[in-house]
Structures are given as C-alpha cells and as structure tokens.
C-alpha cells in the first residue's frame, strides 16, 4: 500500500482521530500516531517589519514554544501522567476544530510513502470555572508517512496567529 491509496477522506479521518485523542486526553494514544523520528515545533511569533524582502517572516527557527522529538514528547506526557502536574490538574478542557485540509507534495519528495498537509486549527481551551475560553488558532504544516499501512505524523510545524500567549501555561499539544 502506498500514499495513492490514501484519499482525502482517509486523510481527514487521521486528523479527526488525532483531535479526538488530544481532546479526550488520551495522550499515549496520540503518541502512537507519531513516527519515531517525529519533529514537532511551535515557533514564537514576533511581529516584524514587512516588505524588505518577500520572505520576511514573523518566525525564526531560534525561538520556540515547543521544539520536540519523540523522547521529549514522551517525557512531557510522562510528567502529565503525574497527579502533581498541577497545570493539568484538573485538565484543560479543549475542543479542537481542524479545517481547511490541503494536500501538498512532501518535502522529502517521497510521494509514495509521504504526503504534506496543511491544516487550520482552532483550539478552544477552558480552565477552571471561567465561561470564557482562550482560543489558540494557527496553521499546521505537516508531513504524514505511511508506516505498515497506517498514517503517522513525521513532521509538524505550527504557526500560531498570536504573539503573546493568552494561555497561562502551554500544557497541551497543538
């Protein structure tokens, strides 16, 4: 089985399942969706002057809110398993809306086994008794890989729209 067998519906299924695991706090199931060599990064946005060159960006690769691999993600999730990880005791109630799924050529060029995908996300976060959610929105640039017939996340870059995080702790995954 190669990537040509993964139609848009199968791609959407992957993202819906991933969002379900994260919203339901099934973080070990989420970990199982990741490739062992996964690279996962959420860079810091700083608003910069535009227009000097076409490639001007608010992002650099030097500052990140999350800059993870499988070992660091395992460590984070193992800590969150502790009953003393106060930021998630009680857990943040989240609802992830994943939309605007767009297929792209994979950066690797391995079109048989990998595909690129862009998604928009809106993550509604409720903490404590506040009726007002903190909403994080952004675009994810992913590489998905077929491993033994199953889609796995091999690379993710999340470009948040906010510069200052409104969330007092980024103890969730995007």
């Amino acid at each position: 089985m190669d990537m040509s067998a993964i139609d848009d519906s199968a791609l959407a299924d992957f993202y819906h399942r991933e969002a379900e695991y994260l919203d339901d706090n099934e973080l070990h199931n989420w970990l199982a969706l990741l490739a062992p060599d996964v690279q996962y990064r959420v860079p810091v946005r700083a608003v910069r002057e535009r227009g000097v060159t076409a490639t001007d960006s608010d992002f650099t690769d030097r500052a990140n809110f999350l800059w993870e691999n499988i070992g660091t993600l395992r460590t984070r999730i193992r800590r969150l398993d502790s009953e003393f990880a106060w930021a998630e005791r009680p857990p943040t109630r989240t609802r992830r809306l994943v939309t605007n799924i767009r297929r792209r050529e994979p950066a690797s060029g391995e079109t048989g086994s990998e595909t690129g995908a862009l998604t928009n996300i809106a993550v509604y976060c409720y903490r404590g008794s506040s009726p007002t959610p903190v909403v994080l929105t952004g675009q994810r640039t992913d590489t998905l890989r077929l491993v033994d017939g199953e889609l796995r996340l091999a690379n993710r870059l999340v470009h948040l729209d906010s510069t200052v995080l409104g969330l007092h702790a980024l103890s969730i995954f995007l």
């Binding site: 809110f65 660091t72 984070r76 800590r79 990880a85 106060w86 930021a87 702790a169 103890s171």
Partner: peptide, 17 residues
C-alpha cells in the same frame, strides 16, 4: 524551553499557584 517557558515543566505549574 523545556523547563522555564510557558511550556516549561517547571513554569507550567508556577502559573497555576
């Protein structure tokens, strides 16, 4: 980043208290 930042393992829990 992994210890003292908004996603940091230390700092996440300071904000709560």
């Amino acid at each position: 980043m992994a210890s003292f930042s908004p996603s940091g393992a230390f700092e996440q829990d300071d904000a709560i208290v």
